[in-house]
Each structure stands twice: as structure tokens, then as C-alpha cells.
Design a protein around this nucleic acid. Structure first.
Length: 293
DNA sequence: CCACTAACCTGTAGGC
DNA sequence: TGCCTACAGGTTAGTG
């Protein structure tokens, strides 16, 4: 589900309540998500205070007072929500949830501004996962990630270095988290459309013989930054089920130029093309065959 | 090392 | 209404 803008939206929703909050009891309703929870996971969170929230690519990071960092990836359907902490009856600690089948992790939080709350992680498909680490270099999930697209390490020059010998199509190249970290299926299609680049074009074709980026690669770096920035401002995109922590939906989907717009006219000014859908490495790609080449 | 596929798992939309 | 298929925002493991 979530790409960088959606994960950042989740982080911004969590931050005001979880930062400074002390974690009480932690309940894991199953031993694993996509991967088993690390040994001692719940115990490591219990009693710790969440000092700050962060994000790296599509990973949420919670820095704890114990010096460790709690990492959470939402996969396709992971979500966090808050619920009141209520005592239903003396023998049962929690009120029964409306549909708890997919509520896999429940944390009691003593928040600074709202008092006691439950933070619930839900994930129908369980493609999400969680981890704990001491130092960033220690997490296998963060190792090897490419630059943050909205940070200083990301540029056309940087992409040119990585694309120089890449025969893979642009779609696959941008989806590769080692190249740029945080893009997913939606924003790759959108960024390529902004730069008028065909998703099937081999990545190396955008690098000049000198190893310098072509003009369109410069356009692409800019397109990536702009589309992600605008999407974050819009609170992400809600296609099916993405919700911010407070339950609100994003609205960037209304501004998609090509994603999920097969058969619609290309929005590029003066372009007469119609949006096509093709399948690349098993996933949908949307593009305009007229203004992308 | 690179490129591609299958796999993980559940829910939902659309066709019949 | 029910059944069946295709597809869904991601990543990793396995193969060649």
C-alpha cells in the first residue's frame, strides 16, 4: 500500500501523540508478520519512552529511550490507529475490537497530551514487518538503501552513476530501492510521465557517454522530488484502504496524471495521447505513448 | 553481479 | 446471490 508519501503521512500522524509517550504493555497477537518478530521484541518496547519518530524510505523509525530503534514497514496493508484504553469489565482488559482479526500488535501508551491510549498495528495481508536495532548500520533492512529522494544525496548525477550499466527498463530501475529509496508503483509511473520518459526505456539510455546525466534524467530527478513533495502535502494517496492515523484519507489520487487512468486522455498540455496500461515485472505500469518516449 | 519469477496473504471488484 | 478470476500501494528468496 504505502509508498514514501503515505509512510511520511503516517509518521506525521503518529508523531504528536507517540513522541514523549511511555510504552506500557505490548501485546503481540501472533508470532510473526511477514517475518517473525525479533526475540524479546515486546519486552524491549515495554517501559521505554518513544523519544522521536523518523522515516527512512518506506520504513518508520521510533527512537526509544533505551537507545534502540523500533523499525516498522507497513507492507501493502499495514496501518496504525489509536484507540481509547478502556476497561470493559474486570476480567477482560480490553474492550473487544470491532474486527480484531488483523490487529496484530497492540501497545499501551501513556501519552503526554492525551493520557493513556492504545496504539494498534493492523495488517490484513501481513506483508509488513518489524525489527529492533541499536545502530542504523546494524539493520539488514536499511543496509543497501539508495539515497532519500527528498534529501541531498539524491540527484541526476547520482542516478546516472547507478543507471550507467543498467539494462533494466526505467520502471524497474526506479522501483529498485538501491537506486532511490521510497518510490513504489504509483509514483514511478507519475515521475516518468512528468519527465516524458517511456517506462520501457533501458535505464542506461538516459546516461550520456561521458557518464553525465542526460537532460531528461535531470527532468526525472526533479519530477521525482516534485511528485513526492506534492503527494506528502496532499496527505498521500488513498486508492483502496490507505488511511492516515486519524482515519482521514489522502487526496493525491485526484492528481494522478496516469496511474489507474487507463483509457483517459493524457493531461500533458497539447498532448493527444491516451493513457495505456502495460505489465512490467508482474505489475501495472501506466503511461502516455505519445508524450513519453 | 544482474535480471526475472515466484512467493508471501487476504480482500475486493468484476464477469458470468 | 454465489462462484471464479484477476488484481492490489511491497519485498525477499530462489533461479538462471
Amino acid at each position: 500500500m504505502p509508498e514514501l508519501p503515505e509512510v511520511e503521512t503516517v509518521r506525521r500522524g503518529l508523531a504528536p501523540l507517540v513522541e514523549g509517550a511511555r510504552i506500557g504493555r505490548v501485546v503481540l497477537n501472533r508470532p510473526d508478520l511477514r517475518f517473525p518478530f525479533p526475540p524479546g521484541f515486546a519486552a524491549a518496547l515495554e517501559g521505554a519512552t518513544i523519544e522521536s519518530t523518523g522515516r527512512r524510505a518506506k520504513y518508520l523509525l521510533f527512537r526509544l529511550s533505551t537507545g534502540r530503534t523500533w523499525l516498522s514497514h507497513l507492507g501493502m496493508t499495514g496501518s496504525f490507529r489509536f484507540a481509547e484504553l478502556r476497561f470493559k469489565e474486570p476480567s477482560r482488559y480490553y474492550e473487544p475490537a470491532v474486527d480484531a482479526r488483523h490487529d496484530h500488535v497492540v501497545l499501551e501508551l501513556e501519552t503526554r497530551s492525551e493520557g493513556p491510549l492504545r496504539l494498534i498495528y493492523s495488517d490484513a495481508r501481513r506483508f509488513g514487518f518489524m525489527d529492533l536495532f541499536e545502530d542504523e548500520g546494524q539493520s539488514p533492512f536499511l543496509a543497501g538503501l539508495g539515497p532519500e529522494p527528498l534529501g541531498n544525496g539524491f540527484s541526476a548525477e547520482e542516478m546516472a552513476l547507478r543507471f550507467r550499466a543498467k539494462k533494466a527498463p526505467m520502471k524497474a530501475a526506479l522501483l529498485d530501492q538501491r537506486v532511490v529509496a521510497g518510490l513504489g508503483n504509483i509514483y514511478v509511473s507519475e515521475a516518468l510521465h512528468r519527465a516524458h520518459i517511456l517506462p520501457t526505456l533501458p535505464a542506461s539510455r538516459l546516461v550520456l557517454g561521458s557518464g553525465r546525466p542526460s537532460e531528461r534524467l535531470e527532468l526525472l530527478a526533479d519530477g521525482v522530488r516534485r511528485v513526492l513533495g506534492e503527494a506528502i502535502e496532499a496527505g498521500g494517496s488513498t486508492l483502496r484502504d490507505f488511511r492516515a492515523t486519524d482515519g482521514s484519507s489522502g487526496y493525491f489520487q485526484h492528481r494522478f496524471a496516469v496511474y489507474d487512468r487507463e483509457g483517459e486522455p493524457c493531461p500533458t498540455p497539447g498532448c493527444t495521447g491516451t493513457i495505456l496500461r502495460i505489465v512490467q515485472s508482474g505489475r501495472s505500469t501506466f503511461f502516455c505513448p505519445v508524450c513519453q518516449h
